[in-house]
Design a protein around this nucleic acid. Structure first.
Lengths: 120, 120
DNA sequence: AAAAGTGTATTATTTCATTAGTGAACTAAT
DNA sequence: ATTAGTTCACTAATGAAATAATACACTTTT
C-alpha cells in the first residue's frame, strides 16, 4: 500500500479517502477481500485501531462490508464509492477557494493563479 | 475584525495568516498600533494566549514588533509581510494539488476541474 | 479438534492545540 | 503617586486524535 500519509493532519480520514480512491479505481475489485486490519496498519505505519475506525466509517458509507472473523470486502455496487469520491473532490476544491479568499485572492484571481501553476 | 475562523483546524496559524493579509492590504498601516491582545482575542472568539503566540510568531517573522506595556505595531517595511503572504499562497496551492492527486486527479485534470468551478 | 488468522471491543496512555487562570513588569494617562 | 491598560511569563486543565495493550468471538486452515 501507499506510505504517503500526511502526519500533519488527522490520519483517520486520510485512510478513508485513500481506500475510497482505491475502490473507485479498481485497485481493489468489487467483492475482493482487503488486507487485514493489522496488515493495513503495518503498511500505513499506523495503529490498528485507527485503521479499524476508518474501515467502520467506510462500512457505514456503503463502500465496504465486513465479515467477522474473515475480513473486509469491497461492495459489489461501487455507486456509493464514486459518489463519495466526487463529493470529496468538490469539498476539497471549495475549501481551497475559501482558503485563497482568506489569503486575499478572490475566486477569479485564484483561477488565474492555478492556471499558471508550473510546479510539481 | 473578522469572525470566520475555521474551528476544524488549528486556530493559531490562521490568526497569523489573517493578520499577515491585513498588514499587506493596508488594513493596518505601517507603524500603526494593533488592538490589544485581549481585544483581538475577544473579537476572534479565542483565548488571549493563542493570540499572544500568534503575534510572537509574526514578530519573529519581521512583520510586527512589540513595545512592552504599550502594544503591537506594524513594521514600517512590509517587504517580509508580502514575501510571507506570497509563500503562503504557493504552499496552499501546492497542498491543494497534492490533495487532488491523492484523490485520483492528476495536475492537468485538477486545473480543468478548477477552471470549470462555478460555486460560491 | 486444534491452531492460526480475522474483526471487534475495551481501557489506558500519549500527544498536541487550545483554554483557563494568575501574576509580574512596563507604559501611559490622570 | 496612583490608576488603568498593556505585554509577557508561567502552570494547570481541557478536549480531540492517535497510540498502546489486551482480550474476546468468530472463520479458515491444517
Amino acid at each position: 500500500m501507499n506510505g504517503y500519509l500526511d502526519k500533519s493532519r488527522p490520519v483517520g480520514p486520510q485512510i478513508g479517502e485513500l481506500l475510497c480512491v482505491a475502490v473507485v479505481q479498481g485497485e481493489y475489485a468489487p467483492g475482493q477481500r482487503l488486507p487485514s486490519v493489522r496488515e493495513l496498519a503495518v503498511d500505513l505505519g499506523v495503529n490498528p485501531n485507527t485503521v479499524q475506525h476508518a474501515l467502520e466509517s467506510l462500512g457505514e458509507q456503503g463502500i465496504l462490508y465486513s465479515v467477522r472473523g474473515s475480513g473486509w470486502y469491497v461492495q459489489e455496487d461501487r455507486t456509493r464509492a464514486r459518489e463519495i469520491l466526487t463529493r470529496l473532490r468538490r469539498e476539497k476544491t471549495a475549501e481551497f477557494f475559501r482558503t485563497m479568499q482568506f489569503l486575499g485572492l478572490p475566486t477569479e484571481e485564484t483561477k488565474a493563479f492555478v492556471k499558471e501553476w508550473e510546479h510539481e
